[in-house]
Amino acid sequence: MADDTLALASKTRSRGIGRALIAVYGILALAATGRSVYEIIAKFDQAPLAYTLSAVAAVVYIVATVALIAPGPLWHRVALITISFELVGVVTVGTLSLFLPELFAKASVWSWYGMGYLFIPLVLPVLGLLWLRRTK
């Protein structure tokens, strides 16, 4: 590392951090998908809105994970769109679940700003957008 030029070091570092980011995205995609499959199979009629949102969130996390891995400007744009959607989703649903809790009789991934997932759904899109800006 010490022998590398500064520019090269910072470039590989950003790529490296990106790998860790992708891994966390992958874990969240898996968690959201597992949860959503269970909710839809076992109890969809209890809270259709919250569970539909969970399914949408799961799909978005999967697409975002793929878009972060795949190269090229098109996938960069897909990553930008899906990650922005996540940020808007978690802020919107988080706020709605605070003020209109009856809409979310059962929690979704994004309820209370992703508290059930240690606020990772709130922090991750911010880190993701920062990383996308750095690698543009």
Binding site: G16, I17, R19, A20, V24, I27, A31, L118
Partner: peptide, 21 residues
Amino acid sequence: IERTRWSTVVLGAICLAVAVM
């Protein structure tokens, strides 16, 4: 496959996720 320090961080993140699960 990818022998960088970030793979070690990924291993850690996975173990922590397993703990939560």
